[in-house]
Design a protein around this nucleic acid. Structure first.
Length: 194
DNA sequence: TAAAAGATCCGCT
DNA sequence: GCGGATCTTTTAA
């Protein structure tokens, strides 16, 4: 379990979004509990020409982390009750990130069940961007966290061949809906929606 | 100062 | 399949 280096994130956003499939997202909590899952669904967001990106209208207090160095965590609050997490990509000052939308639980499953609540079935723990944040115990307090550190990080995993990866349009947005910037593992049960 | 939209989820029908 | 929950951020007047 070694954090990917900053240079890994300092690449083209679509390239990173594709490469994240198979990697393992880890939250090593200070109390010793480790929550981890394999990434099976991502979406790319870019400042340049992408009207759906938080960074499209320029830098603000909320999206400041997107304009910082690559390899940092961007967490935002949405719909009055949900958090979503992204990883910052490309060079500092550009304003792009990849949204993590689906995870396969690997470690800390008992704690995930507790965080999601007793009524939620295992299959519903992490098949959505806000769900996986809840299951991993990630919130606004983790905004700006350094992914090359030991608290929250991503380690390399098996690479999926191209014929197991579906590239399609993003969901849940109302602008720039035609960009094929969503990536997910074909037939994987932890993908939020087909 | 106000209003509306928003990278969603869940329960009910 | 539909609508409610719930509040931050942004944009307009």
């Amino acid at each position: 379990m070694t954090p990917l280096p900053r240079a890994w994130y300092a690449r083209d956003t679509l390239c990173v979004a594709r490469a994240l499939l198979g990697c393992v997202l880890v939250h090593q909590r200070p109390d010793g509990v480790r929550l981890a899952g394999r990434i099976v669904e991502t979406e790319a967001y870019h400042q340049d020409g992408d009207l759906a990106a938080h960074s499209y209208s320029g830098r603000s207090a909320r999206n400041a982390v997107m304009f910082g160095q690559p390899g940092y965590l961007y967490v935002y609050f949405i719909y009055g009750m949900h958090f979503c997490l992204n990883v910052v990509t490309e060079a500092e000052g550009i304003g792009c990130a990849v949204l993590i939308r689906g995870l396969e639980p690997l470690e800390g499953e008992a704690e995930m069940q507790r965080l999601r609540g007793p009524k939620i079935a295992r299959k519903q723990w992490t098949n959505g961007p806000a769900k996986l944040c809840r299951a991993l115990g990630i919130d606004r307090g983790h905004d700006g966290c350094d992914l090359t550190g030991r608290l929250v990080f991503i380690s390399a995993g098996p690479d999926y061949p191209d014929d197991e990866v579906v590239v399609t349009t993003r969901i849940g947005i109302s602008k720039s809906v035609d960009l094929p910037w969503r990536f997910y593992v074909r037939d994987n049960p932890w993908v939020s929606r087909r």
